[in-house]
Amino acid sequence: MIEFEDAAFRYGETDVLSRLNLRLTPGSFHFLIGPSGAGKTTFLRLCYKELAPTSGVVRFRGKTIGDQDRDAVADLRRAVGVVHQDCQFLDHITVGENIALPLQVSGLNVQERADDLASLLDWVSLNDRVDAYPPQLSGGERQRAAVARAVILSPDLILADEPTGNIDWDMALRILTLLVELNRMGKSVLIATHDLNLVRAAKSRVQARVLRIADGTIQPAAADL
């Protein structure tokens, strides 16, 4: 699915990430854990080429994404659903329009997919919030809407950056459940989090591989998490 080969990212004189060698296989479920500022978000941004590695190679579906032009990068991002911690909504359009945004920018007819959109809203329990504006949503509603937007194009890979960072535990479990359901549908899922309780809670629901990011590198985490 996605593969890092000796990839590194340097910001100025600082090595943020180095010697990244890992592969996320189709249908896998990964946690990326580490303290704040360890480089989790940077790693995710390398996955969808919001950042480019300063050395090494990142491949998606076997293609080196560093060589791709801007249109190809746009296509890559349609195949990778991203759930941001701050959700990245457009506050002046409705929740429904925000969720349908990937459809719209892909040139797909949103009206023709109204049923799909309704099913998705039902899945994330936001049917009654479709006409609300993002600032009117609670933290949990925002995260669920972000999940819905990330999966509306049915991407193969879903990246979630601290998806439970600003919400209570019950809501965090609900978000986790949604992501586990997506994995059961065959999607690869990578969750970056510093919340080890979330990782432990997932153990009983899904077979997840845990990666730890520390000192700029990513290694498999110990089994006793």
Binding site: Y48, E50, R70, D71, A74, D75, R77, R78, V82, H84, Q88, F89, L90, L101, P102, V105, S106, G107, R149, L153
Partner: peptide, 16 residues
Amino acid sequence: TQVIRTLRIVGARDRY
């Protein structure tokens, strides 16, 4: 800038 970033993240091409 933030609007443009969001549009790029969800897969909008420059032309769009």
